[in-house]
Measured scan of single mutants.
Amino acid sequence: MQIFVKTLTGKTITLEVEPSDTIENVKAKIQDKEGIPPDQQRLIFAGKQLEDGRTLSDYNIQKESTSHLVLR
Rank of each mutant, 00 (worst) to 15 (best):
Q41R: 02
P19G: 07
K11F: 08
V17R: 00
H68Q: 10
G47E: 04
I36H: 07
E34C: 15
L56I: 09
M1E: 02
I3C: 02
V17E: 00
L50W: 02
I30E: 01
H68V: 14
L50C: 05
Q62D: 14
R42C: 15
E34G: 04
H68F: 15
S20R: 08
V17F: 03
T14Y: 08
N25A: 14
V26R: 00
Q40K: 12
N60G: 15
L8Q: 13
N60T: 04
R42F: 13
V5Y: 03
Q31P: 01
R42D: 09
E24A: 15
L15G: 00
D52Y: 05
K29P: 00
S65Q: 08
E18G: 07
S65I: 08
T66C: 11
D58L: 03
D21N: 06
P37K: 07
I23S: 01
K27W: 03
D39E: 13
E51L: 10
I44L: 12
N25Q: 14
Y59P: 01
F4D: 04
D52M: 05
D52K: 04
T66S: 10
E24N: 07
L50T: 03
Q49L: 14
E24P: 02
R54Y: 13
K11Q: 08
I61H: 02
H68L: 15
I3P: 00
Q62W: 10
V5N: 00
I13G: 01
V70K: 06
Q49S: 09
K48L: 11
L56D: 01
S20V: 05
H68S: 08
S67I: 15
A46S: 09
E24R: 14
K63W: 11
K11V: 08
N60P: 03
I13A: 01
N60S: 08
Y59D: 01
D39A: 12
Q2E: 09
K63E: 12
G10T: 03
F4T: 08
I3Q: 01
A28Q: 13
E24T: 09
R72P: 09
G53M: 09
S67M: 15
T12W: 12
L69E: 01
E16W: 14
R54Q: 08
D58T: 04
M1S: 03
Q41H: 04
L43W: 03
H68I: 15
T55Q: 06
T55W: 03
K29C: 04
K63L: 10
G47A: 04
T22G: 03
E34P: 01
V70E: 13
E18Y: 14
S20Y: 11
Q40P: 02
V17H: 02
